[in-house]
Structure formats: structure tokens, C-alpha cells
């Protein structure tokens, strides 16, 4: 089963920031990682990752640097302190949302 597009949109930023909180990564690596860890549930149109990454860079939540790889230029992203703060905030927001939703749809209590 695939997840609704709108639901995916809001969670992409939090997924990207979480990945980058672990290590420096480049775009394709993130796509593979998200696909793999979500067992194929989150498979976004790959090109749409880049507007999001560039937006994060403009907000200064991530920083980018280029390096050479097999004769190609590769753009690596790292999270900034501001990005970590943002991630923490978004995670809290998500937990609040998830808790409330679970209580309403009745799976939260055993």
C-alpha cells in the first residue's frame, strides 16, 4: 500500500533532517535510504527531493558542499545547528499529532 501524497509532503522535511542528523549525505543516497527504511512505503518522485533540499539550504537548516566522485560533481548536504533545532521542534510536533490521532482513532490505549 502506498501512502497518500499530501501525507508524504509534510513528512519529507522531517525525514531528510533525521537522515542528515546521522551523517552527511547526497540526494540519491537519501532517496535510497528512505525507500529502504520505509520498506518502499515512501517512494517519492525523485526529482521533487531537490526543491526541498534547496529550500532547506536557503533556510540555512542544511549546508552543502561539492566534491568530485568518479569524475562527476556530487553535492553533499550536512545539517546545521539551526537545522537540528528545527528537527527537534518538528519531532515534538509530530509526536503530539501522532498521540492525538491515535487517541481519536482508538489504537492508543491497550
Amino acid at each position: 500500500m502506498k501512502v497518500n501524497k499530501e501525507l508524504l509532503k509534510g513528512s519529507t522535511v522531517i525525514m531528510i533532517l533525521t537522515l542528515l542528523d546521522r551523517k552527511e549525505m547526497y540526494g540519491y543516497e537519501m532517496i535510497k535510504e528512505i525507500e529502504c527504511q520505509s520498506e518502499g512505503v515512501f517512494s517519492l518522485k525523485e526529482g521533487t527531493l531537490y526543491p526541498i533540499l534547496h529550500m532547506l539550504e536557503a533556510e540555512r537548516w542544511v549546508e552543502a558542499s561539492w566534491s568530485e566522485h568518479e569524475g562527476r560533481k556530487r553535492k553533499y548536504y550536512t545539517i546545521t545547528d539551526a537545522g537540528r533545532g528545527q528537527l527537534k521542534e518538528k519531532k515534538q510536533e509530530w509526536n503530539l499529532f501522532r498521540g492525538a490521532l491515535e487517541r481519536v482513532i482508538g489504537e492508543g490505549h491497550a
Binding site: K45, E46, G47, Y50, P51, H54, M55
Partner: peptide
């Protein structure tokens, strides 16, 4: 094809830059 529609990617990037 995996990349998705060029206009979606392009206009998304334009909005940032």
C-alpha cells in the same frame, strides 16, 4: 521517468531560487 515531471521539479526549484 523516476525523476517525475520536469515542470514540477523546475518550478519547485524556481520558487527557492
Amino acid at each position: 521517468a523516476d525523476m517525475g515531471a520536469a515542470d514540477v521539479v523546475g518550478s519547485g526549484l524556481h520558487r527557492v531560487h
